[in-house]
Write a protein that binds this DNA or RNA. Structure first.
Lengths: 205, 205
DNA sequence: TACTGTGCTCGTACATTGTGCGAGGGTATT
DNA sequence: AATACCCTCGCACAATGTACGAGCACAGTA
């Protein structure tokens, strides 16, 4: 994971990992069946970073899950390249889901509504993490800081959105103030999350 | 895209693509700078399949966008491996966003709320597409049909969820009836989408 | 002490990958 | 006839995932 965080997922090779571990390249295959399986394990390790409380309201549980996933993806932006391509059935992912389901069940969700409500939250959490990861990936690909990347991409962004008046207006809003990408994304994240939670709350008896 | 649909993203190599095009492997590089750029173009081609109507309510626009993306990912499950890793600034993606923003703006969203509301919908749409793509990827990796894949994975799924009572309950519900994965996912998708739209509607003046 | 098995490491090897380079050929313009 | 451009492609190289099997250390048994 240190290697992945530092160099991204394209840069991870079994040989590099081996030298990092001061071992032979193929020794890894004693512990792991394939690179894919290794990545599955890594993915579940990341899920281990999202902590869902066992007590507390269903809204708190959902918030903890979604925010935890968001933070995890922020620190490990390569995760989004794995989600959807590899099954997420590790113990950490399972525990998080289990607790989330438990909280929703205790709140009164039942039957298919329970499944659907949980799926809605996970979908939103995953989806919201993607743009965040995209920015991280972009600015890590060059060695620059976020501010520098934002500044550097400004002309390109203005150029490609020039033909789209609504998008241009959005872009201007982004580049109007201090352009703290992370803060904007955080606000955006909680705005949508609260909307979704409000909508789900209306389904409760 | 035919190659990607048939064999998945791991199986796409420049050489295979070249033989499919009855050309030399490196001839492709006359038209395309790198494989990554090729994938960017392919990604935008998929965005071309999601049609957002210019007229109609903001809810209809959001539904069309989300459902379109869902359908596109269903047919091209390899897309999720690209989203978040590659920038989505092609003309088709831009047009879809532009129209979505337009519809929301006409409905009364403005300022940051406009951006956030649109971001919420796209996040949900992307996130909801991921599990769907995961199933597709899984069942395409083996040559089997969906039903066969579902049946074949049943023991594994029961096994890994055995220690999690809430998840077991969910799994039982899934495997209780006819287990039409696609239909369940569709219902789940619209359930969450409507909840989110309801929540967003409450933000309107 | 000798032998056997088991857990683990690693060098070698191979097929496959993305892609840089430069030599070719076809067509249009001068 | 010569030059310029558009386009194709064979070759080559470094890097990749991983199968294979030879080697080690150490445990238990004879």
């Amino acid at each position: 994971m240190e290697l992945l965080d530092a160099e991204g997922i394209d840069a991870l090779s079994m040989r590099k990992l081996a030298t990092r571990l001061a071992s032979g390249a193929t020794s890894i295959y004693w512990y792991v069946e394939s690179k894919d399986q290794l990545l599955e394990l890594v993915m579940d390790a990341v899920y281990g970073e999202v902590a869902v409380p066992v007590d507390g309201s269903w809204r708190k549980a959902a918030e903890a899950f979604a925010a935890g996933l968001r933070k995890a993806v922020f620190h490990h932006p390569w995760l989004v390249s794995l989600v959807g391509a590899l099954p997420a059935i590790g113990p950490n992912a399972m525990t998080a889901s289990e607790r989330l389901v438990g909280a929703f069940k205790k709140a009164g969700f039942e039957g298919w509504s329970l499944d659907y409500a949980v799926a809605a939250i996970t979908s939103y959490a995953l989806g919201a993490a993607i743009p965040s990861a995209a920015w991280q990936n972009a600015h890590r690909k060059q060695g620059r800081s976020i501010q520098e990347t934002v500044a550097q991409m400004a002309p390109t962004i203005h150029f490609v959105s020039a033909d789209y008046p609504n998008l241009s207006e959005m872009v201007d809003r982004y580049y109007g103030g201090e352009t703290d990408v992370e803060q904007i994304q955080q606000r955006s994240f909680y705005f949508g999350l609260n909307a979704l939670l409000d909508g789900l709350e209306a389904c409760l008896p």
